[in-house]
Design a protein around this nucleic acid. Structure first.
Length: 184
DNA sequence: CATACGATTGACT
DNA sequence: GTCAATCGTATGA
């Protein structure tokens, strides 16, 4: 079932572990690919590592919009990274989707990635390539039955997620804001 | 206008 | 383990 706007409007550090075991589903012209979210990172307001730290810009404006929208940006000029906007409108926070376990549309993902199954979506850029998330999906509303949506299939988040430091950043390096499903 | 640098990945030693 | 690819964005002249 769909999640509510209020569910996404909570703090990023609360939503991030709650997103574990939810389903990320992308429908590109009827070609459906989905996966179970197994790793996330929270980017908070007043967080030096966050794109939103210096206020709204053309790139990060979606982070300051309504919760439950998708924020997609170009990483290292090559890859795409997908985030879920959280918190109250204007607060500028989001949760980075770092890894999913492929569920539906495995053949499509293999075509897009041409990699072993274990490496189809085990990274933020890989997940976007496998599921078909593109830059033009920036600002898509995940609740409106859109091209990209996040669904709750009844699987609860892990009671004790693995918690660690965030990856690939140079500021606030030690903050324990990365969450992962154990043994996955 | 010039330039430095990524919320990464994949190939290679 | 190391390192190049590749370009939009931020920052400063």
């Amino acid at each position: 079932m769909d999640l509510s706007r209020d569910w996404f409007a909570r703090d990023a550090a609360t939503v991030a572990p709650d997103l574990l075991n939810k389903i990320l589903r992308v429908d590109v012209d009827g070609d459906v690919a989905s996966g179970r979210i197994i790793e996330t990172e929270a980017y908070l307001p007043d967080d030096p590592a966050s794109h939103a730290y210096n206020g709204p810009t053309a790139r990060n404006r979606v982070m300051f919009g309504p919760a439950g929208h998708l924020y997609v940006y170009l990483s290292y000029g090559i890859h795409r990274c997908a985030n879920v906007v959280t918190g109250g409108e204007g607060s500028g926070q989001a949760v980075l989707l770092r890894a999913v376990r492929p569920e539906q549309g495995l053949d499509t993902m293999r075509m897009r990635r041409e990699r072993p199954d274990a490496e189809l979506a085990n990274g933020p850029g890989k997940l976007c390539q496998a599921l078909g998330i593109e830059l033009h999906h920036d600002d898509v509303d995940l609740l409106a039955g859109s091209i990209v949506s996040i669904l709750d299939d009844g699987t609860p988040p892990p009671r004790e997620p693995l918690i660690g430091p965030r990856i690939g950043i140079s500021k606030a390096v030690e903050a324990p804001l990365r969450f992962r499903v154990p043994s996955d």
